[in-house]
Design a protein around this nucleic acid. Structure first.
Lengths: 344, 344
DNA sequence: GAAATCACCGTAAGCGGTTACATAAACCCT
DNA sequence: AGGGTTTATGTAACCGCTTACGGTGATTTC
């Protein structure tokens, strides 16, 4: 790899001039500039990122905080790949890379985990990262608060955080849930239950409120026994469905706050001899891959998954280039009607 | 963030000594060492990674080459998350991070894509990366050859590469296919077809050869019309299945070289009124999530997906610490019997 | 026509570490 | 006792780039 010094020598200029050619082109004479550029191209010059980061205290990397602790029950992310695709491509457009932070193992570093955001924040400074993207699979969102308070720019995906340089991106959860339930109402259902995400989690609560609003607006009363809590993961959907089926007056339709839980519910129904959609209409949330391969295919509220990544990247970039406080981003959802609700 | 200089001043030593405490502890006096360590701890000292990388020409990062070009038909990876989980945790154990390389957008960089490995190799040097991990969704593996030749340590997942400091990790594809077909034979099938992965791709060919060996060893003849090529993705499975069903003497069992294609085949069979497993036994390969939620659940050859990541990490680390040429890693597979083969 | 302005570029001081080399003190030996 | 080791530390160069500052002509200004 050619260095700036070599270019300088070949061009008969100083390294400062070479640097200026790339960073403040307007301050260098047209002719010498093109000369430097030509030589740089010939030598296939690439500025050394470590040196540049050291000097400017800014790298072209964004950190990704993704906890893969196997001990947590729900450590898998339902749509990580789509998220990464969006994130990566949007960051690429700005010349930024995504650094998946190691969570431990470095003898010099305190074990970094979500429970210990300090470790991540340290890494952010050590590597001069531009900011952090926080993704969570739904279980312990509250840990993100510490990140948001640390002062490093960060944006959380599907988790509400607040801090000096922090925002989040989320779907229109209430609206999505509303449309799902409204659709069920439109099919004539009146006994509609919901399997919620983890309580206390903002997006999860929003989905519940969307569910409630749809029922209320349609003039139905709310039944406590029709709201059973899950944790977004499949097993909880199965358990919840079993409880609902055991009710004296079981629902004829269920809105599950995640596709995983919807699949779990589907399994429970099948095991109980309840046919979907004939005996039970089912709607999920997320529109992940399995939603379309399951039988019957899931009607679901589709989230713009790559859009999360794109929006997160935009927000981070905005914060890097100055903006103090970015407004949260709310992405629209879209109801995808398939077989499980009986309208397909 | 405290710097080495600050520690040095507080301890009344030189920065060199501080550095030595962390890099060659045995060369510094027991007493001053502990003094430095104590102060470092108090100040929560973390060596600046950019400076360290600049000076040592080595960072603690490994690059990930993952092409997300949407224009390619099969740009999604079937089990990216599991791969990343294994990769990340194994790298973490060595204190390394995973850098997802941007593929374009940097004005200073030629657009880096799989077609242009030079861009990635440049980034490797610019960032002083320890090496590259190449993952591919199966479509254009041959592009990886250029990486392997570049001299930077790299390990490919499920793609055979060869080069001075390159290896790969793959499953026992032939063995896995063999066991799948053998299982089908054991169930009494004699007309067994296969839907292959992309031809020319080594793992794909290995699966075909495993299929062949099982038939031959059982004394069956090989029929060309029972081997139809796919590309690992669902649509190709559907198309292939349709061709098989249109045969004058359709197979009674099919071994698909990927779960995605198996699902595609399942859909085609269902659409044609062919019942699985009653009329047609089906076995897949991979054991991805959808394999277990599809109806009937797929019998499949399970790959150790996080194991790929772990093995890749190990290989890279070995190459970084000297080893010239690492031997390829072949991971065992395991037949998971579920409903689609009729034995469940 | 001298002073002020401007465009352009070099000098040099960082950025925060690592490490070859030099130095000094303590230790060993005959 | 004096030369040769060892041990422990400091000095300073270096990694490659950025940038504040200053200097040099050329150009403008009154």
């Amino acid at each position: 790899m050619a260095t700036g010094r070599e270019i300088a020598q070949l061009c008969g200029v100083s390294v400062a001039t070479v640097s200026r050619v790339f960073n403040q082109p307007e301050t260098v004479n047209e002719e010498t500039r093109s000369r430097v550029l030509r030589v740089a191209k010939e030598l296939d010059y690439r500025p050394n990122e470590s040196a540049r980061a050291l000097s400017t205290k800014q790298s072209t990397m964004i950190g990704l905080v993704w906890d893969t602790d196997h001990r947590r029950p729900g450590w898998r992310h339902p749509y990580l790949q789509d998220l990464l695709i969006g994130l990566k491509s949007a960051l690429s457009a700005h010349g930024y890379h995504l650094l998946m932070l190691a969570t431990s193992g470095d003898a010099r570093e305190v074990g970094a985990s979500l429970a210990d955001p300090v470790g991540y924040v340290n890494m952010t400074r050590r590597h001069h990262l531009g900011g952090l993207v926080l993704i969570d699979s739904g279980s312990d969102a509250e840990a993100f608060g510490a990140f948001a308070q640390s002062g490093v720019p960060c944006v959380a995906v599907d988790v509400v955080v607040d801090g000096p340089r922090a925002t989040y991106v989320t779907s229109d959860n209430a609206g999505g849930a509303f449309s799902a339930v409204q659709h069920l109402l439109g099919l004539g259902h009146t006994r509609i239950a919901t399997i919620t995400g983890p309580l206390g989690n903002q997006p999860s609560e929003a989905r519940v409120s969307g569910y409630r609003r749809a029922l209320v607006e349609a003039g139905h009363s709310l039944r406590d026994d029709y709201v059973v809590a899950g944790d977004y993961y499949r097993a909880s959907g199965t358990a919840a469905m079993q409880r609902l089926l055991a009710l004296p007056e079981p629902p004829t339709a269920v809105f599950a706050a995640s596709d995983e839980m919807a699949v779990g519910a589907l399994l429970a129904a099948r095991a109980a001899g309840v046919r979907v959609p004939e005996d039970l209409a089912l709607v999920g949330f997320d529109d992940i891959e399995i939603a379309s391969v399951v039988e019957p295919a899931l009607t679901t509220v589709s989230q713009d998954k790559p859009g999360f990544g794109v929006a997160a990247a935009k927000a981070i970039m905005a914060m890097i280039t100055g903006a103090e406080r970015e407004a949260p981003v709310v992405l629209p959802t879209r109801l995808v009607v398939r077989g499980s609700c009986g309208a397909g």
